[in-house]
Design a protein around this nucleic acid. Sequence first.
RNA 1: GUGGGUAUAGCUCAGCUGGUUAGAGUGCAGGAUUGUGGCUCCUGAGGUCGAGGGUUCGAAUCCCUCUACCCACCCCA
Length: 422
Amino acid sequence: MALQAIKGFNDILPPATTTWRWVENTFHQLLSSYGFGEIRLPIMEYTELFSRSIGDDTDIVEKEMYTFSDRSNRSLTLRPEGTASVVRAFIQHGLAAAGDIHKLYYVGPMFRYERPQKGRYRQFYQLGAEVFGEEDYHQDAEILIMLARYFHVLGVRSAKLNLNSLGCEKCRPAYRQALQDFLRQHDGQLCTDCRRRLGKNPLRVLDCKRPDCRNIVAGAPKILDYLGADCRAHFDGVTRLLDGAGLDYQVNPLMVRGLDYYTRTTFEFLAGDLGAQNAVAAGGRYDRLVEELGGKATPAIGFAIGMERLTMLVDSASVPGSAPFIYLAALGEKALEMLYPLLHALNQEGIGTVLNYRQKSLKNLMKKADRIKVEYTLIVGDQEMEQGAAILRNMKTKEQQSIPLNTLFASIREVFNGHQNN
RNA sequence: GUGGGUAUAGCUCAGCUGGUUAGAGUGCAGGAUUGUGGCUCCUGAGGUCGAGGGUUCGAAUCCCUCUACCCACCCCA
């Protein structure tokens, strides 16, 4: 059988990588401007970190992790998400003790052993960010407005914000109890999965997709009615700021998260044209996690964006081009030898330049120049070598000018600068 | 883990109820235009028809097994 990549592990080739890089660069730029610093994390952690943070009863930990033993029999896991590692690093490096607010972001691959389908792969990339030490609802809104701006800059209009609050450790138990009591009355009508969830994690019943379950859930108590005064004020603060920013969003009291650590504000950006895996970004507050993992009690909020899903929504036509500026068309050995140093000189100057090494017809070289969408083509053949002047062709206007061979570098640089200023 | 679908040229796909040299578009190479791209036209190269087995005079086509990919469930970014 022919060699191929592992199931669910994909190569990303040009021109898709052009989109990826633009999406990443835009993210770096945006997050930096909001005062976030980049954190680079290991790809593996001790398994315990994930079981303790994500939750032992979650699907991710129960059946979706790449876990194996190293040579000294420690259980290691390829990270299935980024937040756990950021929190671990935050505690390990004493950032909590340093006090103040810490804003961190990361970009990189995550791994989950799931059956691949549209928008879901075993190695997938996330763009994520976390803010530690700020409990104020302004921070929640900042992140949501920043994300909306990000999608706007990328030309992604279809991502719709869904918002909810899961309350805190004070108000959630009461809600959980009320929900459980309600669901128990309708036990018989729930699907087998939901009956199982009922005991351990009743909130997960809320986002079951089966019509029967949805019907029952429609009449269930709503978390938003059970929020304590502080959580209520926090949530109202967030929605007030979103309204003020003119951000479109929908409050969805049925939205819960698959990871156990979330509290208060939770959100998802959903896009219709992504197929079944329609969440392009999601996140929320997790005010208890730092303490639960052994750090000093620190409020926190974060999000993660699915890179593959996001790039599916980005129109490749809106990605800024990065084609070389000039194609050097060398006709004959002498021309090639003369132009070769110019290739490097121009590129060193930041002027994107490519040169052909094979001897082809001018027609063929022009065709290649056209394909890679350069602005100019420089033609040098025997005639030009004899006359001491090359032909510079503007590929858009088709205008051609003669340039003395001994001023090629300076002339091209001048044309390039003129082009930049337009 | 459970369903369903697909697998033919580098890429996207056609190939009717089995029939002899397996096609198209696109891309690639050359030409029409002896040194000027995009449009048009012509020519050419490029295929173990996913793998293995079976039925048959004859299989890309029918049957079985396997593998891979895709979509969906579950779950999630």
